[in-house]
Design a protein around this nucleic acid. Structure first.
Lengths: 108, 108
DNA sequence: GTATTTTTGTCAAATACTGACAAGTCAAAT
DNA sequence: ATTTGACTTGTCAGTATTTGACAAAAATAC
């Protein structure tokens, strides 16, 4: 069990026997774009998560986990950061949360 | 020791007794923008990291750690994800690396 | 072979980001 | 009270990035 979000969608789609065109229609996008999404050349738009969940009867929370973990993974991958950097990042998140709870804003 | 990247810059600057205008000039930006950066309302452009390091005689690697950890932290914060999601993300990073070493591309 | 499915290239439109400028607040000095 | 300097905020045009659509090519199935 290890795959990109695109591969995840592709697996769901083929398991159900859908073509790109069929699923794309359900999601409200072009089949060419869906192809790119599955192959990691485009991003899946967050606003379509609900349609995706509905189509495959997925728990929306689990789906979001899959989706957001991908976003974070990309960031980690693209910055090519070390474990040390990750730990620092988690500390910063705590700091952000503490600060924004106090101040009630979203600045960061 | 816990601060945002903006606060980090501000601390460096004030410790040296620089004004916004002075540091901004060294970095090649407007003082108004530097103010926004320090207050978390703008992003610091990666291409200016070297000038920043030089100005304050910082180790560029440590500076990058500070910089990239912030980027990752923001992603984590903005997706409001759980620890579980983070663990999943790290697995995905491993997967990405393994896959792209094999395939030699950067698609994800 | 043809038909269907998938992938790729390209483009304009939409979106987001950047740096600069002007105008604003504020505190300290005179 | 006015001026000065440091900092902050709002706005805006220019830039860069991302998006969805269409056409065409490539791969797969029949």
């Amino acid at each position: 069990m290890n795959e990109s979000f695109g591969e995840y969608i592709k697996r769901l789609r083929t398991n159900k026997g859908f073509t790109l065109t069929q699923l794309a229609a359900k999601l409200g996008i072009d089949s060419a774009n869906l192809s790119k999404i599955e192959n990691g050349k485009r991003e899946f738009d967050e606003k379509r998560l609900n349609k995706l969940a509905k189509t495959f009867s997925l728990n929306i929370e689990e789906l979001k986990e899959e989706f957001f973990s991908e976003k974070i993974a990309k960031k980690i991958y693209e910055t090519n950061c070390s474990v040390k950097t990750l730990i620092l990042a988690e500390e910063k998140v705590k700091y952000m949360k503490a600060k924004n709870i106090k101040q009630g804003n979203l600045n960061f």
